[in-house]
């Protein structure tokens, strides 16, 4: 439960007598997960946070139809996923991963080694982007611990077996391409 002072919100359904939804609790429960979903696509903290905010604004806009949502967790993840994909389409590919790859490089190694490491990470990210769309999406969502195969299948509207097959193919293809690149 979020206890942020002055920010306790409730979604009150005035039309009927259903219990009010504690919005702060929803934000507390899902914001980190939604951030990771958005960040897996955008690889930018600030943009991922903007996406999470947009998700909750959408939640407010649809508050009167929330009763029809079967699984709020999957519904929110799907909104975050789609908003992040929309935002990514507006970015140039070369803007995407440079800073993220640099942030992954170890700070304890010398600068030239860190640069080499960052280039390795950047090539992995570039190869991920070159994967077929379905394989890429499964791979990125599978990176998030909180998401099981069933939820990934729900978000991507595929069967669980299809998700497993796509994930296996994605890893194999990525490994193969990185090996080829190294040679």
């Amino acid at each position: 439960m979020a206890s942020i002072e002055g920010c306790r919100l409730t979604l009150s359904f005035m039309e009927d007598a259903r219990p009010a939804v504690d919005l702060a609790a929803i934000v507390d429960a899902y914001s980190t997960l939604l951030f990771r979903v958005a960040n897996s696509v955008l690889r930018s903290r600030s943009e991922a946070e903007d996406v999470v905010q947009d998700v909750f604004i959408r939640l407010l806009q649809h508050r009167h139809s929330l009763s029809t949502v079967r699984d709020m967790r999957v519904w929110l993840i799907r909104i975050a996923w789609n908003l992040a994909l929309d935002r990514k389409r507006r970015k140039r590919p070369d803007q995407l991963d440079e800073n993220f790859a640099k942030s992954l490089a170890s700070v304890t190694v010398p600068a030239d080694a860190a640069m080499e490491e960052a280039q390795r990470y950047q090539s992995v990210l570039r190869e991920i982007e070159r994967l077929p769309k379905a394989e890429r999406h499964v791979l990125l969502l599978s990176a998030i611990d909180e998401l099981g195969t069933a939820e990934i299948a729900d978000v991507l509207a595929r069967s669980e077996s299809a998700v497993r097959a796509l994930l296996s193919r994605a890893r194999a293809r990525l490994r193969e391409r990185l090996e080829e690149e190294k040679r």
Partner: peptide
């Protein structure tokens, strides 16, 4: 793993609320 363990900033929740 970097994607898996990414953490939002501490002020994100407050900003959203």
């Amino acid at each position: 793993a970097a994607l898996r363990h990414a953490e939002p900033s501490a002020t994100m929740e407050r900003r959203i609320l």
